[in-house]
């Protein structure tokens, strides 16, 4: 029973960064902009959060820094894909590269190495409940925003039929731009959760494709808030299971443990299977990936 509870707890904790990123992706993609760059946003968010927390000794300042960093990078992304009409997948990849290059470069400047930031003292870290509660509130809020408010309606139309939105007198470019900006801020918060709550520092490549898993969760969740949340829980569970299985003996050979490599690939394998098994039937926003 305790076992179950602790597995549940770690599932929630490990899902939180995915949920933040997936909700960011939800905003961006419902407004019609593919968001491959969630990964990069998580990287800069996680790093900025760690740096700010180390300097100001407050995880809240850390979160604020993450949001600012995420906004900065997503402003760049939004500029590339909206006014400059770059292919969204290609530009997203560029932003991911940029994040992967900028973070260690700044780390080198600040701390003299390109690996991890120094460790954040225990009492300056984010309590695990914060992000978990925050993530759930976020899902509820976004679900409400999209379904019940004028802004939500605009976002949905921007992704479904932007010309209809424009002919109704709403500025599509602005709706998309702001959605992409918000997406960056949310994904960066996901990154902050990684460095401030789930571990004790930002370390190189610690996002480990979570940005892409968040996208997979979004697709699996049919671009809807609560189903995407459920998909994030599934991936979080795979990760929790991965941690739990380390060092567990093989059932048929009690003196040997399951090779760690096979355990490590579990979340990726689950993502791949989920994406392959169920996505064919889900319908993307009609104008997703198109220029306006």
């Amino acid at each position: 029973m305790d076992e179950m509870l602790s597995l549940l707890g770690s599932t929630l904790r490990l899902s939180a960064p995915l949920i933040f990123a997936a909700m960011g992706g939800l905003l961006s993609e419902r407004s019609g902009v593919i968001h491959i760059a969630l990964e990069g946003m998580m990287m800069v968010g996680g790093f900025a959060a760690a740096v700010a927390t180390l300097s100001f000794h407050s995880p809240l300042v850390g979160c604020a820094a993450a949001v600012i960093a995420g906004l900065a990078f997503s402003a760049l992304y939004a500029a590339l894909v909206i006014p400059f009409r770059a292919n969204q997948v290609v530009a997203g990849t560029a932003i991911n590269f940029l994040a992967a290059g900028v973070v260690p470069s700044v780390s080198k400047l600040l701390y003299g190495n390109t690996g991890s930031t120094p460790s954040i003292p225990l009492d300056e870290r984010l309590h695990w409940a914060g992000p978990v509660v925050g993530a759930i509130v976020l899902v509820a809020g976004l679900a409400l925003l999209l379904a019940k408010t004028p802004v939500g309606l605009w976002i949905r139309f921007a992704g479904e039929h932007p010309h209809a939105l424009a002919s109704a007198g709403v500025n599509v470019i602005r709706v998309r731009f702001l959605s992409v900006l918000a997406a960056g801020a949310l994904a960066a918060m996901g990154g902050a959760t990684l460095s401030l709550s789930l571990s004790s520092a930002y370390s190189r490549n610690m996002t480990a494709a979570r940005g892409f898993m968040a996208l997979a969760a979004l697709i699996f969740g049919k671009w809807k808030a609560w189903p995407a949340f459920a998909a994030c829980l599934l991936f979080g569970f795979a990760e929790a299971l991965q941690n739990r299985l380390q060092g567990v003996a093989l059932p048929w050979k009690p003196d040997e443990t399951i090779p760690v490599q096979f355990i490590q690939m579990l979340p990726y394998l689950v993502t791949l299977v989920v994406l392959a098994g169920f996505v064919g039937r889900s319908r993307a926003p009609k104008a997703l990936g198109t220029q306006f």
Partner: peptide
């Protein structure tokens, strides 16, 4: 200028909600 998956009402009030 109508979005298929959305309701008649949503399509009509769009822009003057």
């Amino acid at each position: 200028m109508l979005a298929g998956p959305h309701t008649v009402l949503e399509n009509i009030v769009l822009g003057c909600e």
